[in-house]
């Protein structure tokens, strides 16, 4: 028999290394001699969209068109250290460093225009090449450094401000459980994601889809199957991850409530988008068939066993 149920989960996620550990991002904004803006930063594009998001922040802070930004992040010998592409920290931390460097560069360009040419303008776009040529081969460079604000917790009580900022997620999920096979199908989802401010809504939606898929795998499919320290599921024939057929269509709700310390109010979302998925599925399974699955993944074997226990009324 196929039974449907719905479940919810709400979660929070603290951004950054945390606990007072120096969480520093550095960036350089440069007016190249070709009139383009070069951003040098050691922040990795792992597929999350860092290059695009961080370029948008630079364009906004400089007040120039997006197409003027050249983003360079692939070489340690020419980029400053911007910390790791993890902890959902690049948009917030490195975004802030880039914003600072870009604002400094913009102010410098405005100063030069005023001092050298007597031009008082807020629109620097049209003068970039003119200013760029002033120094000959020497490019105009400004740096930006941002350090996240957290404190080390008390060793005895764990009291303190360990992370900043926090991002919230609320996911509602519908499942269909086949009580004969034990197979759980996720049929519908509504994902509400707090983002502070959406720098690029489409990229956020992509993160929600991707996080959902990983959370779905975590909840009902994935296990490396350790036996005496050996990974038994070490290939895609046995370690199953979701395919296009396992994914539901998702209604995404992007919640904007700007965070003052974030670049234009933005917060990191790379990890938050994942964490509410599996627990919402577990609550939906209970809603559908009345069994509490306390161990994940909820494989068909595990679920059938739990259903049998319930039937026997143990």
């Amino acid at each position: 028999m196929k039974k449907r149920g719905i479940g919810y989960a709400s979660t929070f996620y603290g951004t950054g290394y945390g606990n007072g550990f120096p969480d520093i991002s550095r960036a350089i904004a440069e007016l190249g001699t070709d009139g383009n803006i070069y951003i040098y930063v050691g922040a990795t594009e792992v597929g999350q969209g860092a290059k695009t998001i961080l370029s948008q922040i630079a364009a906004e802070a400089l007040g120039v068109d997006f197409s003027s930004i050249v983003f360079i992040c692939e070489d340690t010998s020419i980029t400053p250290d911007a910390g790791t592409a993890a902890a959902s920290r690049q948009t917030y931390n490195t975004g802030n460093a880039i914003k600072l460097a870009s604002e400094k560069l913009r102010n410098e360009i405005i100063n030069i225009l005023e001092k050298r040419y007597g031009i008082s303008t807020e629109n620097i776009e049209d003068y970039l090449l003119q200013v760029a040529k002033l120094n000959g081969d020497e490019a105009l460079r400004m740096d930006g450094i941002f350090t996240a604000s957290t404190t080390e917790m008390d060793a005895e009580t764990g009291q303190g401000n360990p992370y900043y900022p926090y991002t919230f997620s609320v996911y509602g999920i519908e499942v269909e459980v086949d009580t004969t096979t034990g197979i759980v199908e996720v049929t519908k989802a509504v994902c509400g994601q707090d983002v502070g401010r959406a720098i690029n809504p489409k990229l956020i939606e992509g993160q929600i889809d991707g996080g959902f898929s990983m959370g779905l795998g975590y909840g009902i499919m994935e296990d490396i199957n350790l036996q005496s320290g050996r990974i038994k599921h070490d290939r895609f024939t046995s370690y199953l991850i979701p395919t296009a057929l396992d994914m539901p269509d998702i209604d995404k709700i992007i919640i904007e409530e700007p965070e003052a310390t974030g670049p234009y109010g933005a917060k990191g979302i790379g990890e938050p988008v994942l964490v509410a998925v599996a627990p919402a599925i577990l609550n939906a399974i209970y809603n559908a068939v009345g069994v509490r699955m306390k161990e994940i993944p909820v494989t068909p074997e595990r679920l059938l066993k739990a259903l049998k226990v319930k039937e026997r009324g143990v």
Binding site: G47, G206, I208, G210, S213, I241, T243, A244, I250
Partner: peptide
């Protein structure tokens, strides 16, 4: 297989 996009 895709691990990033969730296919949608």
């Amino acid at each position: 297989l895709c691990r990033c996009t969730g296919y949608n």
